[in-house]
Each structure stands twice: as structure tokens, then as C-alpha cells.
Amino acid sequence: MRFIINEHSIEADVDVRTSLLDLLRDHLGLTGTKKGCNQGACGACTVLVDGERINSCLALAVQYQDREILTIEGLGTIGDLHPLQAAFIEYDGFQCGYCTPGQICSAVAMIGEIRRGLPSALTEDLALEQIGFSEDEIRERMSGNLCRCGAYNGIIEAIRATYAEESAQEREAAA
């Protein structure tokens, strides 16, 4: 099977039962993506496929051949952090760090969803394509990522600070 992971083409011969998560961690050594619940309930395994966030634990690797898969390793490196990674450090967006790769991958895609005008459970007027960037809106949209350490406030701050332009517009609109 051929996979495109973090812009590299990779061949791997795996059992058809292998989840995308296990392919990454156990077969390719990409252990940045974490296994929390293994049942879609925590978001620790979040990766991006063609720019969209999914839970890699509930995905069969065989179904993701030739799709663009992006993991935390592809988002930034220690020498060259993604702005959101830097913000997680600055704003204490983690304690143990186990949920962090999933939080960051999820947030990167979540920003894309807001920019594309996708509604959420908090969207009051569904006809509007301009979606707000309020704290509540981010909390709702990030609800698929749990943090046992409860670093939620730092996570939200890091996201808002990184995408400050949108947050500023939101504050302006509220004023």
C-alpha cells in the first residue's frame, strides 16, 4: 500500500485491519499522533487528511491510500515550530502533553472550517457565512478533543492568540 504522509510517499505492507493510527505509530514510527481511547471519543489521534481533521483511530489505513495525510510531525519541528505550537508553549496550552498533538492538528483544521463558513451548534443565523471567532465558538468546535489535565483555558488562549486577526474582528463586531 502507498501512502502520502507529511508530503512523503511511503510504501507499507500492513494487515487490512490496521487503523491509520496504528500505521502511523507502530509501522512508521510517527509516534507524535497519540492513542487515547481508540474509539473516537477523545481526539488524541486527530490527523489531517486532505486538509480535514479526522480521528485516525476510526480509520482503516487501507482506505487512506493516496490521500494527503498530515500529522503533527509534518506541521512543525523543534527547530521550526508551527505558530500554534509556539503559542501552546507561550500560553500553557498543555500540562502532560498527551492530548496536545491532537489539539493542535484539530485546531489547524478547525480554523479552516471557520474560514470556509461551516456552521456549528452555536451558529445563531445559519444563513450567515461569516462565522464568529468567539471563545464559546472555539470551545464548541474543539469539543472533540478532550484534555484530562484540563488545560482548556490555555488551549483556547493559544488558538485565539495565533489567529488574532479573526479574534480582533470578533471583538470589533461585539463592540
Partner: peptide, 12 residues
């Protein structure tokens, strides 16, 4: 729909 599951799950 948006009241169900999570952003990640709804994408799949």
C-alpha cells in the same frame, strides 16, 4: 447534524 458527535467525526 452540528449537535452530533465532533468536528472530526462529522468529517467522516
Amino acid at each position: 447534524l452540528v449537535a452530533g458527535a465532533s468536528g472530526q467525526l462529522r468529517n467522516k
